[in-house]
Computed example of a mutant assay.
Amino acid sequence: MASGVLIVESRPASPEEAAAYHDWYDNTHLPEILKVDGFVAARRLASLGGDTFIVIYEIDGDVEAAKAALAQAQASGTMSRPTGVELAPPPTVRYFTQLIR
């Protein structure tokens, strides 16, 4: 079972860039992020209106360590730049950790 998740909410920059947005997510970004230590699975979902999308990335192990590993991969240039993603406003990025009660 995952110890945490990263949830990212985003949308294409325009209807004309939607195909590039989905192609980048499916064929470039998801394979890249799943190579980062701690990230073990990902799934994409569309809002009922189809204009907003979320990705739920499952994290196994220390969520803070996975967050740091992702930041390092982005800073080093290992991760590609987004294609067709609306950046104003930027995507919403939130990390969650499993509650232990």
Results as ranks from 00 to 15, higher is better:
Ile59Cys: 03
Pro12Trp: 04
Val63Glu: 03
Gln74Phe: 06
Ala75Gly: 11
Pro89Leu: 12
Ala66Cys: 06
Ala66Gly: 07
Tyr57His: 06
Tyr95Trp: 15
Gly77Pro: 13
Ala88Val: 11
Ala69Gln: 11
Asp60Met: 01
Phe39Thr: 03
His29Lys: 05
Ile54Val: 13
Thr97Val: 14
Thr28Ala: 10
Ile54Trp: 07
Val93Lys: 13
Leu87Pro: 13
Ile59Val: 11
Leu70Arg: 01
Phe53Thr: 07
Met1Cys: 07
Pro89Lys: 11
Glu16Cys: 06
Ser14Val: 06
Ala13Trp: 09
Gln98Tyr: 03
Lys67Asn: 09
Ser76Cys: 01
Leu70Trp: 00
Val8Gly: 01
Ala46Trp: 06
Gly38Tyr: 03
Thr28His: 08
Ala2Gly: 01
Glu32Cys: 02
Ser80Phe: 10
Thr92Trp: 15
Pro89Tyr: 12
Gly38Ile: 01
Trp24Tyr: 15
Ala42Leu: 10
Gly50Pro: 11
Met1Tyr: 06
Glu86Leu: 14
Arg101Val: 00
Gln98Gly: 08
Thr28Val: 15
His22Tyr: 13
Thr92Ala: 15
Glu64Pro: 02
Glu9Lys: 07
Gly38Trp: 04
Ala66Pro: 05
Arg94Phe: 12
Glu32Tyr: 03
Val63Gly: 02
Val63Gln: 02
Met79Val: 09
Asn27Thr: 06
Ala88Tyr: 08
Asn27His: 12
Gln74Val: 10
Leu34Asn: 00
Met1Leu: 07
Ile33Gly: 04
Gly38Gln: 03
Ser14His: 05
Asp26Ile: 10
Ile33Asp: 08
Tyr21Thr: 09
